[in-house]
Amino acid sequence: MSLHSFGLEPLSCHAWNKDRTQIAVSPNNNVVNIYEKKGKDWHKIHELTEHSGRITDGVWKPTLVLVRINRAATCVKWSPLENKFALGSGARLISVCYFEKENDWWLSKHIKKSIRSTVLSLDWHPNNILLAAGSADLHCRIFSTYIKDIEDKPGPTAWGTKMPFGELLLEHKDCGGWVHSVSFSASGDQLAWVAHNSSLTVADAAQGKEVTQLATDLLPLLSVLYVNPTDIVAAGHDCCPYLFTYTGPHALECVKKLDIPKQTSKGSLSAMQHFRNLDKKATEEDNNELETLHQNSIMQLCVVSGEKSKVEKYSSVGLDGAMVIWNFKD
Rank of each mutant, 00 (worst) to 15 (best):
G7N: 10
Y246D: 07
Y242C: 04
S135I: 07
Q295E: 10
R71N: 12
T216K: 09
K113D: 11
Q300D: 14
C75M: 11
S26N: 15
N103H: 13
I94Q: 01
F99N: 05
I325T: 13
S199M: 04
E36Y: 00
H46V: 06
L191K: 05
C239M: 13
D286P: 00
K38H: 11
H180W: 11
W78V: 08
K308C: 01
S108H: 08
A203Q: 04
A91G: 15
S135H: 04
G177E: 08
H4D: 14
C254R: 15
G208F: 10
A186H: 14
E82C: 14
T63G: 00
G160D: 07
L218R: 11
V179A: 07
S181R: 10
V179L: 07
D204G: 01
K61H: 09
D174Y: 07
V67E: 08
Y226G: 01
A205P: 01
Q273T: 13
L66W: 00
F85K: 10
S223N: 06
S26G: 09
V233P: 01
T74P: 05
S309V: 10
Y242M: 12
L122F: 10
A322V: 07
L191M: 02
T264Q: 09
K113E: 09
V202Y: 06
T56Q: 11
L8Y: 06
P164M: 03
K262H: 14
S117G: 01
S89K: 03
N33T: 04
K310H: 13
S117M: 04
S121V: 09
G53W: 07
L168A: 00
W193N: 02
N70W: 07
S108W: 01
V31E: 15
L252S: 02
S309C: 12
M272I: 12
D137I: 03
K280A: 14
C97G: 09
G177F: 05
V31N: 08
I111S: 02
D41A: 14
K61F: 12
L258D: 00
P220E: 05
V182G: 00
F275I: 12
L87Q: 09
H14K: 06
K162A: 14
V67C: 08
